[in-house]
Amino acid sequence: MSERRLEIPRYGWRTHGPGFAMIAVLLLLYAGGLTLLEINPARLITGFARLGDIVMLMLPPTPETWSRFLVYLDALGQTLAIAFLGTLTAAILGLPLGFLAARNIVTSRIIHFLARRGLDTVRSVDTLIWALIWINVVGLGPFAGALAIASSDVCALAKLMSEAIETADRRPVEGIMASGGTRAEAIRFGILPQIMPVFASQILYYIESNTRSATIIGIVGAGGIGMHLSEQIRVLEWQQAAFIILMVLITVAIIDAISRVLRRNIIGRA
């Protein structure tokens, strides 16, 4: 009887060495991080116990009085206004900047490089930092919040747009140039119709995600619901805090639903 051997794949240092080494480095870094950040089981256990207490205290979520509910509703409206205004301002400013940073529109390598780096620099500053800066300029309140959202998203939108422009089909542009159109006409009739649907659906995404960011912008005093939320947490009114979080969740869900319908229409039409 001949012996049948099953070829079993071997796990050796040669085949899996690099992978193991990488995982080892990642784990080592993780363990180092836990030690340096002073994260240990004792703190986690007491923390989670206290967190459990907090969650129990949150139930049931309630605004307590109708007048407070109206105050929160008003603040939530303000949050939506901040998100909408900020995103639209960013979109209006971001579109031309996107053209400036697109390699096929601006052929100068230096301008392209400077535009891209400039966009990256502004993009790497968080919205909340922008909010603090704008508060120093226009004072506390929602206006500073809208400006903060606008300034942090201008560059993100511009970058997305420049990528959309770079991948746009060249043929319409060539057709317009060949039949004697100017550069402006080539952009208006050759490129703009191609990127408009992308642009519109990106704006909708940003309004969605900015509704989320606008809820926290109030933590530093730039208007909206965040101010009330951080205040209620600070004075340990957990039921009200939970109620505000619930209101935010519902609002975000509604905005999500609306923008999903709009986006489907826009993409369907294009």
Binding site: L80, A81, F84, L85, P142
Partner: peptide, 11 residues
């Protein structure tokens, strides 16, 4: 909507 949010955000 823009005008409305302008009012809301105290622009």
């Amino acid at each position: 909507l823009l005008a409305l949010s302008g009012l809301g955000a105290e622009v």
